[in-house]
């Protein structure tokens, strides 16, 4: 048991094995990911962050926001909604099939669905039900679609429409996925809270907008100064105990604006192959749109 070289060799082998498993293999698998064309929005995803949101990401990193906030949405399962997309020519047959698929429907309801297709027949069913119903409608002329809906506590909390996957972080540098939820998840915060002023107030003093918040205030991202000739249009609308002294106003620094711009850019607004869901939003809202131009 005193063979130093043998010991060295075994350490080297173990080292190489763990390096291959968790460095080389992920890099080979995921390192060459590229943007993908998303047909629903006709653009490439993900888009590289532009403008001051890039600086905002840096402010986020420097302030250590990642110590309390994750940017990853978990999904524990999925269910389906079955939609009759096209009734076809044999409406009587399809109506009876619709009733067969969903026993709770009255004749009238079934006829309504067939007459007004596309319409949902069943909600929240499993993959097996989907397959059996698809078999039912085969060759009937009627066409059904199964729309997948992700489920899970994070999704029920409204933290995102689907789970996040590797592709979502393609342009983050560094990737700040986080591991602690002392604060809520931020992967989709730009869709949930799209109001710039809300974010600025929240950063200046979280208790102004969220009464029970335990988030620390970030007063150093703001400048309290004397009102000049006229109040600045950028000044925060602070009331009551949070308001600055008479004759003073609170102005966000460029860092605060950048951070807010970054937070607004955090959005999950369409499906990817790894995490399918039914895309319902028509278009992302306009102001964010300009920052999310495709990287072509």
């Amino acid at each position: 048991m005193n063979q130093g070289p043998l010991l060295f060799l075994s350490v080297l082998c173990a080292m190489a094995a763990s390096w291959m498993g968790f460095v080389l293999m992920p890099q080979v698998q995921l390192g060459n990911q590229s943007t993908r064309l998303v047909k629903e929005i006709g653009r490439h995803y993900p888009a590289e962050r532009g403008g001051i949101a890039v600086k905002g990401h840096d402010v986020y990193r420097a302030a250590g926001c990642v110590s309390c906030h994750t940017q990853q949405v978990r999904q524990s399962g999925f269910i389906f909604d079955i939609v009759l997309t096209d009734a076809g020519d044999f409406t009587d047959l399809v109506t009876s099939l619709v009733q067969q698929a969903n026993g709770d429907l009255s004749d009238q309801q079934a006829a309504d669905i067939v007459a007004n297709a596309p319409k949902t027949i069943l909600e929240g069913v499993s993959k097996q039900t989907v397959d059996s119903i698809a078999f039912l409608f085969k060759d009937s002329g009627g066409k059904v679609a199964a729309n997948i809906r992700p489920t899970g506590p994070d999704i029920d909390r409204g933290w995102g429409p689907r789970q996040t996957v590797g592709l979502d972080y393609l342009f983050d540098e560094p990737v700040l996925m986080g591991s602690q939820r002392i604060g809520p998840d931020l992967a989709d915060v730009g869709s949930r809270l799209a109001d710039r002023n809300w974010h600025l107030l929240h950063l200046y003093h979280p208790r102004t907008v969220v009464e029970k918040s335990i988030m620390p205030a970030y007063p150093y991202l703001f400048e309290t100064r004397e009102i000049g000739d006229s109040p600045s249009p950028d000044a925060l609308a602070l009331k009551g105990e949070f308001a600055p002294e008479e004759g003073m106003e609170v102005i966000p620094t460029p860092e605060a604006n950048a951070l807010v711009e970054y937070l607004l850019s955090l959005r999950i607004f369409h499906p990817v192959f790894e995490a399918p869901y039914i895309f319902t939003q028509a278009e992302p809202s306009e102001n964010i749109d300009s920052e999310m131009e495709p990287a072509e």
């Binding site: 390192g31 590797g166 990737v175 996925m177």
Partner: peptide, 14 residues
């Protein structure tokens, strides 16, 4: 010389 994307997370865990 950071690697791109989510691989960072795995290497961090490693």
């Amino acid at each position: 010389s950071p690697v791109r994307g989510v691989t960072q997370m795995i290497i961090g865990g490693w």
